[in-house]
Amino acid sequence: MHRILVVGSAGAGKTTLAREIACRLDLPLIHLDRHFWQPGWTAPGEARWRETVAGLAARPAWVMDGNYGGTLDLRLPRADLLVFSDPPRLRCLGRVLRRRWAHRATPRDDLPVGCPEQIDLQFLRYVWRFPRDSRPRLLAAVASRAPDLPMVRLRGRADVRRWLESLPDGQP
Score class of each variant (00 low, 15 high):
residue 119 I to S: 03
residue 70 G to H: 08
residue 75 R to F: 12
residue 142 V to S: 02
residue 75 R to I: 06
residue 39 P to Y: 04
residue 66 G to R: 02
residue 87 P to R: 00
residue 118 Q to Y: 12
residue 102 A to P: 04
residue 4 I to Q: 08
residue 42 T to Y: 03
residue 61 A to I: 07
residue 55 G to C: 01
residue 89 R to Y: 05
residue 40 G to Y: 13
residue 123 F to Y: 13
residue 1 M to D: 07
residue 19 R to T: 14
residue 7 V to Y: 00
residue 57 A to Y: 05
residue 144 S to A: 13
residue 111 L to F: 12
residue 2 H to Y: 06
residue 4 I to F: 10
residue 141 A to N: 04
residue 37 W to S: 10
residue 72 L to K: 05
residue 66 G to S: 03
residue 116 P to N: 10
residue 152 V to N: 05
residue 52 T to V: 11
residue 125 R to V: 06
residue 123 F to V: 10
residue 38 Q to T: 13
residue 102 A to V: 13
residue 19 R to S: 15
residue 131 P to R: 06
residue 52 T to D: 03
residue 130 F to V: 00
residue 68 Y to M: 11
residue 120 D to Y: 10
residue 9 S to E: 00
residue 110 D to P: 03
residue 163 W to M: 06
residue 48 R to T: 11
residue 15 T to D: 06
residue 5 L to T: 12
residue 88 P to S: 08
residue 114 G to C: 11
residue 137 R to V: 07
residue 42 T to R: 14
residue 79 A to T: 03
residue 101 W to L: 15
residue 107 P to Q: 07
residue 84 F to D: 02
residue 71 T to E: 06
residue 157 R to K: 11
residue 155 R to Y: 02
residue 48 R to W: 09
residue 146 A to H: 11
residue 107 P to K: 10
residue 48 R to D: 15
residue 75 R to M: 11
residue 89 R to H: 05
residue 168 P to R: 13
residue 6 V to C: 14
residue 108 R to P: 00
residue 8 G to C: 03
residue 42 T to F: 04
residue 97 L to F: 02
residue 90 L to H: 04
residue 143 A to I: 06
residue 23 C to G: 12
residue 87 P to Y: 00
residue 110 D to K: 00
residue 53 V to N: 02
residue 60 P to C: 05
residue 65 D to V: 04
residue 15 T to M: 06
residue 89 R to T: 12
residue 122 Q to H: 13
